[in-house]
Amino acid sequence: MAIQEPQQKEPRSFGLQTPGTKGVIGKKRYAMVIDLRKCIGCMSCSIACKTEYGLPLGVWRTWVKVMEKGGYPVTKRIFMPRLCNHCDYPVCVRNCPTQATYKHEDGFVLQRYNRCIGCRTCMVACPYNARHLLPEKRTDDKLPRMVVDKCTFCIHRVKKGLVPSCVQACVGGARIFGDLNDPNSEVHKLVSTETVTVLKPELGTSPSVYYVGADWEIMDEPHSYTNRTAQSKAEFNDFKEYHNGDAFADIKEGENLMAEVGKNWVGYLKTIPHKAKETFQAFKIFLFD
């Protein structure tokens, strides 16, 4: 990838706290390359991430999608680690009404819990499903709840000279992290020399997670819906059953749609008492403490 002169005007930068820094001299641009030829699907990255942040059940900052291809005896299992793409032109940042999510000058797309109102606009905007709402019930009440959460590229580790937790835990060395603008970095060399691809390039978000050796079918959005195992379908309904609530429109497959819409409405009403209690407590603290 060639290092360019800084672009003075980039129309896609509006609404962002800092313009895209990919290929800009004198700027850092952290990125990740995932070499799928080396991924063995051990899910260590997902577990390392879950452990690093104490993520509750049902939500993921990174996960590995698995696909099987071919027919017996010539079959292949394909893995696709997924995470926030820390786009250069993130739609989520542009659409956030309170600047809770913002773009760091080094390329990270970050979330400020104290600003987030839980409107989920960013979740609707994100084309990669990289965001989730933290549930109401956590093991520790001091942990953030009912605000949107996402991958941070482990900025707290990167600022100390470490690599993100998922990269550290990757046993196959499939995840490579570094400054894309540094010509000596491994990510720069890989992006410059290998055939790399990104997810949904047509959207113009300029993702910073690059894949080497990706299969087109596992990257395809409709394929995820049309080609699933029966078990995967059952798991989808289980997920909707046990991780619903919080006013999500969780519609189970094979169920009556309007009944599911009705349940969704009931789910919304059920959330009101505990939200009212929390609001009342917040007022109490504000007025008397």
Binding site: W60, W63, V64, K65, V66, M67, E68, K69, G70, G71, V74, T75, R77, I78, R82, R120, M123, V124, N129, H132, L133, D215, E217, I218, H223, S224, N227, R228, T229, Q231, S232, E235, F236, F239, K240, H243, N244, D246, A247, F248, A249, D250, I251, V261, N264, W265, G267, Y268
Partner: peptide, 23 residues
């Protein structure tokens, strides 16, 4: 081309629900 099938994936919520449609 042989068949390909997704055997595992993380699922996601539909972020805006019935409340928004009523609104």
């Amino acid at each position: 081309m042989g068949e390909s099938i997704v055997t595992y994936n993380a699922f996601h919520h539909v972020a805006w629900g019935t409340t928004i449609s009523v609104y």
